[in-house]
Design a protein around this nucleic acid. Structure first.
Length: 873
RNA sequence: GCGGGCGUGGCGAAAUGGUAGACGCAAGGGACUUAAAAUCCCUCGGGCCGAAAGGCCUGUGCCGGUUCGAGUCCGGCCGCCCGCACCA
């Protein structure tokens, strides 16, 4: 006897236990079936899962369960991105060890994830803070060193004064640290770099092959890599004006066509020529110091005025020995792009124009827009960067921009000075090498040793892993590894003399750049991967995560895949064949009279949509209903997944997450809709119970013929099956949900007839089975409960996906809408394969059509077979 | 500034160039009930005609275009969102 109400709190843990005991989600590497690797971005173990996790992991689980039912050997693992700053912050604030804090959090979050009923293979669980994981990362680092993919260099770095560490360019958002939010400062430090620029061209080229990635993400990466083609060009300097023996200035330009519009040269404040010139010029030195003081913080750049300082040096125009250009030090020239020097053509570059207008250097237009008389073409305060023909440019006059670029390149390439061509074509990238040194404790130690005598020496492989010491203190800011009394003191592996360990640890983005490969065989101890196994599983067929990783994590992982291929740890080019970026979970905000935020759980809502008011449950004060925003601790508009699981169960939460909003868009969490999802769970349970009673009258054999009611139900069931299957493949989960609702309505109507005719009973049984299987990927616990109630001996999670009987879906007669002059006026029912002429005749015979024609003769009748008919009068 | 995306009922949304608003939420009405919850049924873009059945007009941010036919394609605006941003 089935219960009246479905008790999720009782049923969900029971089925989780069953899945666990039978080990049905453990994936074997020697399974002969075709593979499917579905992966969601693994979480940082912050302590509790949030609704964003619930949404992300529900989507992945739907795909995993669906593909499993479709007969694939599915790899669906989970792990922990476990190194990082918050563990150290907790250590400082609460005097707990980062390791203990992290592992406690992992345990708590694992319990939460398990309560969601995710079909994960927990036997492959990895934590990046485990030496069993990071030892392989250290090994790969050493391999990368040997392969020339690592560099140690001094560079200007982004320094986060709050976290007291270096940040990669990618981690600086609007001039602030991505985690601390502090204004980033500039510092000169010696850092370890991974040479991601080695693959800049390949990372760019292969974006085109990632046809199952969102266009948006590919574009963002393309812009980030930022390729530009141009000319590297050496200007001769007037010797009488130069300090020391500097004789030339090398610049990079993408606009060699505008050379005859040049009015000045500009170099970065930290350009060697600037430094040399400043030695004899205190005013210039002061100017340079001022530029450096301003730094590169984005906020400063946006508002800073173009400023320059005339060095007195003169550069000679490459096409005219009698034409010299003043060389300025300018605050808007970056040392780390191109050569840190430019020639300025104010007429066609806004920055250059702003600059000359300030210093009175004038401008000469050299590109004239089509349809404009060159005599009338004057530039005042808006530079022209559009298309046109060359003017005021001697031998270039009349050429297109492209032709002029080519002509300049051709002439200067041929010309030599000091055995070298004056110019050469060059490709430049915006992408910088990836600085991975972090002055932190809770990260993967960089396995290098500094020896006074031998220099920088790698840790011998037999000494790996370099394990983090556990006896550290967090009572002072800075890096505890640096302060540790003994850890950093080691013997040099080469000379045996006293040496010092590298105390910087790796950026945690390194950890997440290869975990997907480790999941393929996390048991291998001798190497990061079993290459053969990894190659069989990779690439990840469907990767799901937040858009916030569009550049950072995804670009680093693409780089790592290439670096691992180069060092023999992986044999493919691209790690993620399919990528899906899901939207955020958002919620209304509530503001109390005193300006403080109120949490949803503290608020009671009254009134209908359009006139809703919110009151504090405690005290009854009215609170202001604010904007719908991303769930965040600061706005207190979060809903705790545990509370939802407790009240409604995991299936309701999962169903809600998939309903309504398209997965790539933000979903607004509202109590009403969650309740709606909860009601649907109960409704399904009730309906399946009633269907199970009817099904008892079903014959064992499929009936030879079906009555009208039975046939209609079968059509609904197989139609839903076909549609849901197609939409799930496209990850259109909200559309799947709508089709399941629609089918459930039809199913409910059928069940309510209470007929017990054998053919009908058989159809009900078939429809019930299909319905349960359709929602199994979304609501797996309820599905098991229903599946058992329908008398199945196996688990719903292991049942094969049913095949839609397409023959049922082909109607012999169809009803087409009939338009007259594009407006619908009638319907016509014809044979499915009726000839167009017959359809036309039937349509013209319709009374409604004749009425709409109002005596006019039809000029044309357009029949789109099985679609629509349009009569044009 | 550059690049990209989006704009459909009270709300979330659906719609290979082919019946706009499927499906859900909210709302209103009704049934059942001592009552409530739960459940079930009906209505639900706007306007007009009709007792009703039904019919007509209008409608996918705005203006144009292509087409037998446009939410969908093209051009130009307006608004919102996102990414990048002194990259030579």
């Amino acid at each position: 006897m089935t219960q009246a109400r479905y008790n999720a709190r009782e049923a969900e843990p029971r089925w989780q236990k069953t899945w666990d005991e039978r080990g049905i989600f453990a994936t074997r590497n020697d399974d002969p079936r075709p593979k499917y690797y579905v992966l969601e971005m693994f979480p940082y173990p912050s302590g509790r899962i949030h609704m964003g996790h619930v949404r992300n992991y529900t989507m992945g689980d739907v795909v995993a369960r669906y593909k499993r039912a479709r007969g694939f050997n599915v790899l669906h693992p989970m792990g922990w991105d476990a190194f990082g700053m918050p563990a150290e912050n907790a250590a400082m604030e609460r005097k707990v060890h980062p390791k203990a804090w992290t592992y406690d959090n992992i345990a708590a979050m694992k319990t939460q994830l398990k309560s969601m009923g995710l079909s994960l293979d927990w036997s492959r669980e990895i934590a990046t803070c485990d030496p069993a994981y990071y030892r392989h990362q250290q090994k790969m680092f050493l391999d990368f060193v040997r392969a020339g993919l690592v560099e140690r260099k001094q560079s200007k770095v982004n320094w986060d004064p709050v976290d007291q560490t270096v940040l990669a360019n990618e981690q600086v958002i609007d001039g602030r640290g991505w985690r601390s939010g502090a204004l980033v400062e500039q510092r000169e430090l010696t850092q370890w770099f991974l040479k991601i620029t080695t693959y800049a061209q390949d990372l760019l080229d292969r974006l085109d092959t990632l046809d199952r990635w969102p266009e948006k993400v590919r574009l963002m990466q393309k812009n980030w890599i930022g390729r530009s083609e141009g000319l590297l060009l050496r200007f001769m300097l007037d010797p009488a004006t130069t300090p020391n023996a500097e004789s030339e200035l090398e610049i990079f330009t993408t606009r060699p066509d505008t050379l005859f519009g040049a009015k000045f040269m500009a170099i970065a404040p930290d350009h060697p020529l600037a430094t040399a010139a400043a030695k004899a010029n205190p005013a210039l030195a002061a100017f340079i110091a001022e530029c450096k003081r301003q730094g590169t913080a984005q906020e400063v750049i946006e508002t800073a005025e173009k400023q320059g300082f005339d060095t007195g040096i003169k550069a000679v125009h490459p096409f005219d020995p009698n034409w010299t250009l003043p060389v300025y030090v300018a605050n808007f020239i970056l040392m780390d792009y191109g050569t840190g020097a430019i020639f300025g053509c104010p007429a066609h570059d806004q920055r250059d124009l702003d600059f000359v207008n300030k210093y009175g250097l004038g401008n000469t237009p050299v590109v004239c827009p089509p349809g404009v008389d060159p005599k009338d073409f004057v530039i005042t305060d808006a530079a022209y960067d559009g298309d046109g023909r060359m003017i005021n440019s001697r031998f270039l006059d009349g050429m297109t921009i492209e032709a002029a670029k080519e002509e300049v390149a051709r002439r200067l390439e041929r010309e030599t000075r000091g055995n070298r061509p004056v110019a050469q074509r060059q490709v430049n990238f915006r992408l910088r090498d990836w600085g991975i040194s972090r002055q932190r404790y809770w990260g993967c130690p960089i396995p290098m040793i500094h020896c006074e005598a031998c220099g920088v020496v790698p840790v011998p492989e037999q000494d790996l892993p370099v394990v983090l010491p556990e006896d550290v203190s967090f009572d002072k800011p800075g890096n505890p590894l640096d302060r540790h009394p003994t850890w950093k003191h080691v013997a040099c592996p080469q000379c045996g003399g006293a040496a010092r360990r590298e105390t910087d640890t790796m950026d945690t983005f390194v950890d997440s750049s290869w975990y997907f490969a480790r999941f393929t065989d996390p048991w291998t101890t001798s190497a990061p991967t079993d290459v053969a196994v990894a190659n069989r599983w990779m690439p990840v067929d469907q990767y799901i995560g937040g858009i916030e990783h569009a550049i950072l994590h995804l670009l680093y992982s693409r780089f790592f895949t290439r670096a691992m291929r180069a060092t023999g740890h992986l044999g493919l080019d691209e790690p993620f064949a399919g990528l899906f970026t899901q939207g955020m979970v958002v919620h209304e905000t509530y503001r109390k009279k005193d300006g403080a935020w109120a949490a949803p759980a503290e608020v009671r809502i009254e009134g209908p949509e359009g006139n809703r008011r919110a009151f504090l449950i405690d005290g009854g004060d009215e609170v202001e209903i604010g904007a719908i925003e991303k769930m965040s601790k600061s706005k207190r508009n979060t809903v705790d997944p545990d509370d939802i699981m407790e009240t409604y169960g995991a299936d309701t939460a999962r169903w809600f997450m998939l309903s309504d909003s398209p997965p790539e868009r933000d979903v607004n969490w509202t109590e009403d809709r969650v309740q709606g999802a909860g009601r649907f769970v109960q409704r399904l349970w009730r309906l399946i119970g009633e269907a199970a009673d009817i099904a008892k009258a079903a014959p064992a054999q499929k009936p030879a013929a079906f009555g009208e009611a039975a046939l209609a139900l079968r059509k609904a069931a197989h139609g839903a099956l076909a549609k849901v299957s197609a939409e799930i493949e496209k990850l259109h989960f909200n559309v799947c949900v709508a089709h399941i609702y629609e089918f459930t309505n039809a199913f409910g109507d059928a069940v309510n007839t209470k007929s017990d005719a054998p053919d009908f009973a058989w159809a009900v049984k078939e429809a019930a089975d299909i319905l349960v299987q359709l929602f199994q990927p979304m609501m797996p616990h309820l599905a098991e409960e229903c599946w058992a109630a329908l008398g199945h001996g196996n688990l719903a999670a292991q049942a094969a996906w049913p095949e839609a009987d397409t023959a049922l879906l082909v109607e012999t007669t169809i009803t087409l809408p009939v338009q007259v002059n594009g407006k619908k006026r009638a319907d016509v029912t014809v044979a499915r394969d009726a000839a167009n002429a017959d359809v036309e005749a039937a349509v013209l015979a319709l009374e409604a059509v004749q009425k709409a024609l109002d005596g006019k003769a039809p000029k044309k009748v357009i029949v789109v077979p099985q679609r629509i008919v349009n009569v044009v009068a």
